[in-house]
Design a protein around this nucleic acid. Structure first.
Lengths: 182, 182
DNA sequence: CCCGGTTACTTGAAGTTTGAAGTAACGGGT
DNA sequence: ACCCGTTACTTCAAACTTCAAGTAACCGGG
C-alpha cells in the first residue's frame, strides 16, 4: 500500500510508551504522521489537565473550558457563539449550560434583541471561583512546558498558527473575513 | 459585543470562526496560549476525520484508531498495550473490543503465557476492509495539509516531536527504553 | 400581513469515555 | 507452598458527545 520507508534515522521504538504516535510507521506518509503526532501531543496534555482539574477542584475539563470562555466575556455569550468557540455540538452546550446553571456557576438571560438567543454569563461566585482555578491551571501548563526550550516553544507556537490558518478557512458558515496576513 | 481589541499585531478576529483559540488573550501566558492552539488544531483535524469516517464508512474514530493499531501488528496486541497506545482507559478498550468482535472486525485469544492477558487481532475480513478505509483516510489527510507549505509542515512535525519527547518521560510505568537520538 | 427559508436552541436516543471498584492471575520473597 | 503487592482486565455509574428531529423566533419578499 505505502511503498516507502527510508526517511527516518530514528527508528520507531515499537509500542511501549509511545502512545498514539506508535501508529505511525515508516510506511505511512508524512501527512498521517503529522496528524498522529499532533493528536498525541494534544492528548497527553489533555490527560494531565483533566486529571488535575478533577483532583484539585472536582471539575471536568468540558466545564472548565466552558467557564474559561465565559470569563473572557463579562457581558456574556450567546450559546451559539459558545458552541462555535468550544467546537462542540449545540446539544452538548445545552446540557453543560443546564448543569452549570444548576450548580450556580452560570446564569442565563434572554437576548432582548433576539428572543431565540440565550445569553449566559458567570455569576459573581462563578467568576471568583473560576479565577482561583485558572491561576493554578496556568501554572500546571507552565510546569508542563518548563524545560521545553523557549525558542522551540515559540517556533512551535508559530507553526501551529500557520497550520491553524491553513485549516480554518474551511466551512465559513458565518460572517467574518479571513485576513491571511502572511 | 466585545469591547476589546488592540493587543496583537495580528489582531484576533473576534469569536467568529476562531474556535478554541478564541480563549487565548493578551493576558494569558505563552504556555496557555500554546496549549490552546495545539488543542484547536488537533480538534479541527479530528472533526473532519470523524465526520468523513462516519459519512463514508459508517465507522467511528475510536474504532478506526483501534483497528489502525491492530493493522500494524499482524500478531495481535494485548489489551493492555492497546490501552496505552490509544491513550484511553481500560474500560473503554474493553467495550470497543466487545463491539469490534461482535461486528467481526477483531478476534480475541488468551495469551498462553499469561492467562490474565487477552490478545486481539484483526480478522482477515477486518484487515481487508480496514486497508480499504485506510487508503482513503490517508488521502483525506493529504488533502487537508495540501497547500500547507512543506517546509512549514516538516518544521511543525519536528517541533511537535520535541514537545512529545519533552512530555513523554512522565510516568514510565512499563519497560522499554527511550532512545532520544537527536 | 403572511409565507418560506433560515437561525437558535432543545430534546431524546445512541454511543463514547471516564474513574472507581472489583475479580482474577502473576511473581517474588519467605 | 503461601502471602502480598502488582498487573490485566471487567463492570458499572456518571458524565460527555453526537446526530437527528423538533420547536420557536427571526427575516425578507410577495
Amino acid at each position: 500500500m505505502s511503498p516507502r520507508r527510508h526517511f527516518a534515522q530514528v527508528h520507531v521504538v515499537d509500542d511501549e510508551r509511545l502512545g498514539q504516535e506508535a501508529r505511525a510507521q515508516s510506511t505511512d506518509h508524512s501527512a498521517v504522521r503529522l496528524w498522529l503526532r499532533l493528536l498525541s501531543c494534544s492528548t497527553q496534555v489533555e490527560q494531565v489537565i483533566r486529571a488535575r482539574l478533577r483532583e484539585r477542584f472536582g471539575i471536568t475539563l468540558p466545564r472548565f473550558d466552558y467557564l474559561a470562555q465565559l470569563e473572557r466575556h463579562p457581558d456574556g455569550l450567546r450559546l451559539n457563539t459558545l458552541t462555535r468557540n468550544l467546537m462542540v455540538t449545540g446539544g452538548n452546550v445545552t446540557l453543560l449550560t443546564e448543569q452549570l446553571v444548576a450548580d450556580g456557576w452560570v446564569e442565563r438571560a434572554t437576548d432582548p434583541a433576539d428572543r431565540r438567543s440565550t445569553i449566559v454569563s458567570l455569576t459573581s461566585w462563578g467568576r471568583r471561583e473560576f479565577l482561583r482555578m485558572a491561576a493554578e491551571h496556568e501554572q500546571w501548563l507552565v510546569a508542563l512546558f518548563c524545560g521545553f526550550d523557549d525558542v522551540h516553544r515559540d517556533a512551535l507556537y508559530e507553526h501551529l498558527g500557520r497550520l491553524r490558518a491553513h485549516l480554518a478557512p474551511r466551512g465559513p458558515s458565518t460572517s467574518s473575513r479571513q485576513e491571511r496576513a502572511s
